[in-house]
Amino acid sequence: MEWMVWTVPTTIFFSTIAAMLAGMTMWEVVSPTVERKGFLPISTTRGDRLFIGLLSAGYIHLLVVGFTPLSIWLALGASVLWLLILMRWG
């Protein structure tokens, strides 16, 4: 494990992802998802919306970090908000 050079932030990052996947699986077992069409142009399941949210979060972070002087926490906040909107109405 030493060669993987873990740091605290990346550990938190991957733990969050793992927790999300576990949570989604449990949610799926308790109440299976129904494919539906929201404001996105394609019909999606919960898992699809989570993926779209995470992927766009990646791009939001890159844009903020690369091309603006803004804090990364702002990007994080925006991403979380966007993810919630996507999960609810996407």
């Binding site: 699986t25 799926e28 077992v29 399941t45 898992g47 699809d48 993926f51």
Partner: peptide, 9 residues
Amino acid sequence: FIGDKHLFF
């Protein structure tokens, strides 16, 4: 099964 489409992707 749970997650089949995402796994495939």
